[in-house]
Write a protein that binds this DNA or RNA. Structure first.
Lengths: 187, 187, 187, 187
DNA sequence: GATGAATGAGTTTTCATTCAT
DNA sequence: TATGAATGAAAACTCATTCAT
């Protein structure tokens, strides 16, 4: 009945929301189908398996992350690159709805531990850490760098109950994250 | 008739490990029973439901958190208390195996969103934020404080692949966390 | 608009092969469509149902069997006719690819037990037995006659791993089968 | 409610019957459970998978076949052994209900082609052929030997509509089978 | 002569839970 | 303190079939 089936996109949208709210394992395909107003079988017309929905969701973010990492690898390691990288990472996270996807990933690490796309994402995150850390960094320093990226991800839900605009949220996240890639440890 | 059911403790231990590795929904009672070498039905002698195992796991941590919060509430808010609170929180986390429990909680937020003990834990975490934040704090400031506690939790698995002793891990975590509660945002 | 739908024939060919290799129930229309490089829906342009494909496959063999039986009924029962019948049956089986169809039938008796064309084939086989047996034949004798026909069918796959030409296979089959319509039971 | 659960045995009995009548794929676990008067889940208490039911059914027959083959391998190849082997094979088939199992196997070759126990059975059948054939045998000769065993299996259903006692059936089968292993091809 | 999108009814399987013993 | 045997509900997935285009 619908013009030119955007069903696939709507499945992705609903799945991402439910997987994040209730967890991947806690969300059945029946639920997704019901919210969409189709039968379960329709989902299988568009995606081969439940895991496949996740895979499809990963794709954009993968591409974006690969670009970011490639950009950074073409530059000298150091404070300048780190600073700029955090800014670009924040942009790529907030200007699309990629923060929603990253939150979904964080909330479903265990459920998705065997999904190859998710494994790939873990590798990409290691690539990010490589960019932010130098060889001789202390343990505290490495932890600090990790937390910078974590902060960008977390801002969205840590501040979720506060009356704060998306703009403010992003600004706050970037401000805090930048401190942590720039400042030397207190020591 | 035996005082200290050894079995009960072993169920908790195995459950905590599996729930963390594979997720709460991804771990069946059959699996726990198998690792223990008993039947599923035996678990029901010790715990009324699967959720009950989680509840029992929460108890120690709840008590500890309540003590910590009570202590802080008896003191004036401010940098001194914040600093001391972070130190005590870190101790309470690392000197028992509570970090394992907190990690389990973080990994299973969605699956356990209806568990009353877990809801209570969320409230306690809000209590912790109350202690770390002042009324007039900016958005960035509040985010920063949250990240302090997050850092203490995260140090365990962020640094999990590195050759680092538990001691070093704790020291690094505390160092970074203190920065997060002490330093003013770059402004 | 085209006279001799090539597609129709290719569906039959692929279906016969897959139904034999994997079983009727073990072969989905999706599989057939994939091997053909069309969609499932295309199959429904050529055949009303899955069972209909089987029905269409039966047709040639039905006609052949009817002719064989009619021929035999026009002759006196007896060793002469039996001998000649076996030779003609073998020809009709090996000179087309009817042995492939008969093998498919044997492998899918249960799955197809409600298909009317298959029921008809069972009747035709009874007709064949009528031709090969006399009124007063002992149980052993009747079994022996059945096995003669069975042998013609079975030669194809009993000898499938041996390096044997189709010609040799047919000759061997006929030789063994003839013994069993001709020889009196050992007794 | 039942004394000392013979449920497992009843599952096997019903499954063997239905798998033979309707085919393995054509028989759902729901059907078996219904005929037994339990829920599907009860079947899974006794068998890990549907395939496992088949595996369990194979066991007795496997053991019997192994014994038969071992016996024959301890004797010189030749007409004497062949003759005696056929007699023993027939006994082992008819004195238990193994003919029912073999019929089930023949009717479900394709459906079960990936089941390891069934693969093992195919190997055992090859072992049987080894016993019945000599090195220099012609194609016709090898086919003839195969048909001997086939006859023992087939007698049960080839003669199923005739008013014949089990005793007579077995006698007829053995008589015909012996011809197949003893007589030289006419040529 | 075909496809894209969908459905309804079914499948095998898993799970938390119960209860008599 | 446990176990053996079972259940009811639900899960992911598959299939033959339909129909508007």
């Amino acid at each position: 009945m619908r013009e030119h089936s955007d069903t696939r996109a709507r499945i992705q949208e609903i799945a991402l929301r439910l997987f994040t709210e209730q967890g991947y394992e806690g969300t059945s395909l029946r639920e997704i189908a019901e919210q969409l107003g189709v039968t379960k079988a329709a989902l299988y017309y568009h995606f081969r398996t439940k895991d496949d929905i996740v895979a499809s969701l990963s794709e954009d973010r993968h591409a974006e992350m690969e670009n970011l990492i490639k950009w950074a690898q073409g530059r000298p390691r150091g404070p300048e690159t780190r600073r700029e990288f955090v800014l670009r990472y924040a942009d790529s996270l907030y200007d699309s709805n990629h923060h929603a996807f990253m939150r979904f990933m964080e909330r479903n690490q265990t459920a998705l531990r065997d999904n190859p796309k998710v494994a790939r994402m873990r590798d990409l995150m290691k690539g990010v850490m490589d960019i932010l850390c130098d060889e001789g960094d202390s343990t505290a320093e490495r932890l600090r760098r990790s937390m910078a990226i974590f902060t960008l991800h977390a801002a969205w839900f840590v501040l979720k109950d506060e009356e704060v605009s998306d703009e403010e949220r992003k600004d706050a996240a970037v401000k805090v994250a930048l401190d942590y890639v720039e400042l030397p440890p207190a020591a």
